[in-house]
Design a protein around this nucleic acid. Structure first.
Lengths: 208, 208
DNA sequence: TTCAAATGTGAGGCGTTGCTCACGTACCTA
DNA sequence: TAGGTACGTGAGCAACGCCTCACATTTGAA
C-alpha cells in the first residue's frame, strides 16, 4: 500500500546532465513565479525536455523542489562556516548580525530561487522538510555560538531569540526583494539595526 | 471586452441573510485552511447552500474574500481609533507599540479569519487590494501620529519604519498563532521589545 | 390571487495540473 | 552486429476547482 514508485537514478552522462538542467530550470522558475505557480510542464519546457523525462528521475514535483533545496543547503553551509567562526568575546552580536544579513543577501542575489525557498515557506512534503533543515542550518550553529559566548542566557530565551532573528530576516529580505536597489539597501540597514538592538539587549546585557 | 458580469444585490431578507452566512463561512474556512486551500464548494457546503447561490451575489471567489476583508477593515478602524489617540509627548512609542500588538492579538483571537488576512498576503485581485487598504488603515494614522510627535524625522525614514513595524508584526503574529498559548505570549513579548527598541532609536532620539 | 422578479439549486462545462504509459531512440557491452 | 538496458517523448488520463446555466421555488406588489 501507498508505496511510492521508485525512480531511476541517472547512470549515463546524458541523463545526469538532463537532471542538472531540470534542477536549474526549476530553480529559475521558482525565482520567477514562486512555488505556488510552479508547474511540471513549465519546468520541462524551460529545461528543453519533456515531462516524461522529469518523471524518469523524480517521483513527483515536490521531489524536484526538495532536490533544489538540498543543493542550496550545501551552498549555505559553506557560507555559514566562514561567518560563524567569529570570537564573540571580541566582536559584538551586532557585527555578527550584519555579516549574516549581508551574506544571505549575496547568496540570494547569486543563486536563482534561493530567496523563494528561504523566505517562501509552505511547500509541502519533502521539500518543506528540506527547507526546515535549511533554516536549522542557520539557527543551530548560530545558537551554539551564542550559547558559548553568553552562557547565562537560558536555552529558552536563546531559542526565542533565534526565532525572532530568522522570522524577521525572512520577511524583510523577502519584502526587500520587491523593491528597488536603494530601498533594498535601506531595508537591510533597518533590519540590521533592529536585530542588533534586540540581540544586544537580550545577550550583551548578560555578559558573563 | 473583459466586462465582468454584474451580480445581483441581495434585496430580500432571505438573500441578505444568506450572503451573511456565506461571508461567515468564508471567514471561518479562511481561518482553518487559509486562502490557498479555500474552495468555492467548501464555502457553499459550510454555509449550507449551493455554489449557485454564491454566484448570485459575487462575481467570483476573490470577491467573496474581498468582502470579508472589507468587514474586517470596519472592525479594525474602530479599534485603532481608540489606541491611536494617545499623546506621544507624555507616553513613549514603546507603550504605543505594546498597545498595538495587544489589541491586534485580541482582534485576531475574536475574529475568525482576521489573522489569515492580516498576516496572509498574496491573494490576488480585489481581495489583495482590500488587504492592502487594511494595512494602510494601520500605517497611515500611526504614521501621522509619529509625524506630529517627531517632526524632525524624515518622511522617508518614517515610511521605512512603518514597513518594519507592519512586516515584523505580521510574521511574528502569524508565527505565534502556530504555537501554544505560553509561547505565543513570549513571542509577542519579544516583538514588543524589539519594535520598542527600534522605534525608540529611530524616533525618541530625535525628539524635537 | 396572480405573476414577474428575486432567489435557490447542482449537474456539468471548461480549463488546468500532476502524472502515466506505450512506444521510440541512444548507449553500451559482447 | 545484436540485443538488452537506459533514456526520451508527448498524447492523454484523472482529479480538481471555478463558474455557468437551465430549471425550480419563493416572495411581494398589484
Amino acid at each position: 500500500m501507498a508505496r511510492k514508485t521508485r525512480r531511476r537514478r541517472p547512470r549515463q552522462k546524458r541523463s545526469q546532465q538532463r537532471v542538472a538542467t531540470i534542477l536549474d530550470a526549476a530553480a529559475e522558475l521558482l525565482e520567477e513565479v514562486g512555488y505556488r505557480a510552479l508547474t511540471t510542464n513549465a519546468i520541462a519546457s524551460r529545461a528543453g525536455t519533456s515531462i516524461g523525462s522529469i518523471y524518469q528521475f523524480f517521483p513527483n514535483k515536490n521531489a524536484v523542489v526538495a532536490e533544489v533545496v538540498r543543493g542550496f543547503r550545501g551552498q549555505l553551509d559553506r557560507l555559514l562556516e566562514e561567518i560563524l567562526t567569529v570570537d564573540l568575546a571580541r566582536s559584538s552580536v551586532t557585527g555578527l548580525v550584519e555579516a549574516l544579513v549581508d551574506n544571505l543577501e549575496e547568496l540570494a542575489a547569486a543563486t536563482p530561487g534561493f530567496g523563494s525557498i528561504f523566505t517562501g515557506g509552505k511547500f509541502g512534503g519533502s521539500a518543506e522538510e528540506e527547507a526546515l533543515e535549511l533554516e536549522k542550518d542557520i539557527i543551530e550553529p548560530l545558537s551554539d555560538l551564542l550559547a558559548e559566548a553568553y552562557p547565562d542566557v537560558s536555552d529558552e530565551q536563546r531559542r526565542l531569540a533565534m526565532l525572532m532573528v530568522t522570522e524577521t530576516t525572512k520577511v524583510l529580505m523577502s519584502r526587500a526583494a520587491q523593491e528597488d536597489r536603494e530601498t533594498q539597501q535601506e531595508i537591510r540597514q533597518e533590519l540590521k539595526l533592529m536585530l542588533g538592538l534586540y540581540l544586544s539587549t537580550r545577550f550583551e546585557a548578560k555578559k558573563g
